[in-house]
Design a protein around this nucleic acid. Sequence first.
RNA 1: GCGCCCAUCGUCUAUCGGUUAGGACACGUGGUUUUCAUCCACGUAAGCGGGGUUCGACUCCCCGUGGGCGCGCCA
Length: 452
Amino acid sequence: MSVRVRFAPSPTGQVHIGNIRAAIFNWLFARHHGGKFLLRIEDTDRERSTPEAVQGVLDAMAWLGLSTDEAPVYQSSMRAAHVAAAEDLVRRGAAYREDKGGTGKGEAILFRMPAEDVEFQDDVKGQLKKAAKDVKDFVIVRSDGSPVFHLGNVVDDIQMGVTHVIRGDDHVENTFRHVALYRALGATVPKFAHLPMIVNAQGKPYSKRDGAAYVGDFREKGFLPEALFNYLALLGWSPGDEREVLTVDEMVAAFTLERVHPSPAQVDQAKLMWMNGEHLRRRPLGERVAGCKADLQANGIWRDGMDEAYLARVVDAMAERVKLYTDMSVQAGFFFNDDFAYDPKLVEKRLRKPVDMEAGLGALHAAWAALPEFSEAALEESLKALAVARGANPAEFIHASRVAVSGMGVGPGLYVMLVVLGRERVLARLGRAKNLCARTDAAAPGSAGGNG
RNA sequence: GCGCCCAUCGUCUAUCGGUUAGGACACGUGGUUUUCAUCCACGUAAGCGGGGUUCGACUCCCCGUGGGCGCGCCA
């Protein structure tokens, strides 16, 4: 029997990471077994289902690479089959009409739960059993003629030939009802596997209040799809060895339901961030450059006509410092913008006190302007010689130079950074920074007032 | 209230009766960089409690405790 699984979201809003993780597990399972991965849009809630939400599901899946093998099934189009199934159950005495609760709304169709206990094998949780008395009859078609979730879900899964129902833990209780429905409908009961929930630090279902909760949130924050995919796959599943950063192919090869952990898991943003960095550095330079460029463009830092080769050198210099493409604008904006802002605290600490660097920066400017070759080695040698000659610690000059050319205290190694920036920019920035040195508020009495 | 499920470092997890309980993130320390970060090394840190079963339990069973889910003419 070839495997057929499905992802069956309700398009009623943004796609939650818990839902998309269910999709990921289904997809991985299908690919591992060479089966089919299907999509069913459960859009029967006309009040809340919107075309935008449907598109949102499709976009999220496409972004993560969750390819489907057949055209999506829209549950709303299956209504006739649902009602027919219910009528059939009534004819055979497995269901009955009743004005449940005497609402006066008319008669609904209720499924008659069998008198015997219900049992099923869950591929994650093991053998599950429920006493007959604990499962009540339930409505399958409302008095207005519309089918209820349980009925539609089961009828559609039968119709779509679903062999394994892999879904969230919150459906375990429903499964007892569903199993009874399959039997009453004369269908083969599929295998079930219930995935643990994603919870917050308090153990409650993870929601928007706990931080990024939707696929779109992570995408906007700059996370890579392969990183989110990998991270989510590892929430409740592990390959069995000590690998953590995995390619999709590796996950497909290793995925089994037996290795799914039954207890709930918390999202650890820090680890996701780390994982994103791991996946980022695995992307070829060309792709990283394109990603960084997009972020710089989005923030108005990159303008058409700028030097692409220069961008590539910057990205290379930033290398492992960047964990998200969106780090570029904040961490490397100064490479592209000559009018970058100086961190006031660093100006104070590195350019004014304890040592006024005005003369020092002037000396560096002169020395570097005269350097025959603007290379890392030459720059380093020159800086150190100059510092020593002036009776200073090279570290002072290093820090001062960094602040002078970038305005920041963190960044690539100083000499690499200088070379990438190039002589022209460096000299201009040194000149500009000189004007920030101790001549105003930080100046000693008597030496203030210089304006040259 | 009743029913079902879950329970290993702060977090994600390995372990399927015998291990100094392993790895990763985070954290700490040290080294490298006369520079922040990176990187490297090392380190701190766990079997919810109580009973059993067994020569031997994190692992199996029971009772608690804690948490989650369900008990809709929502999905």
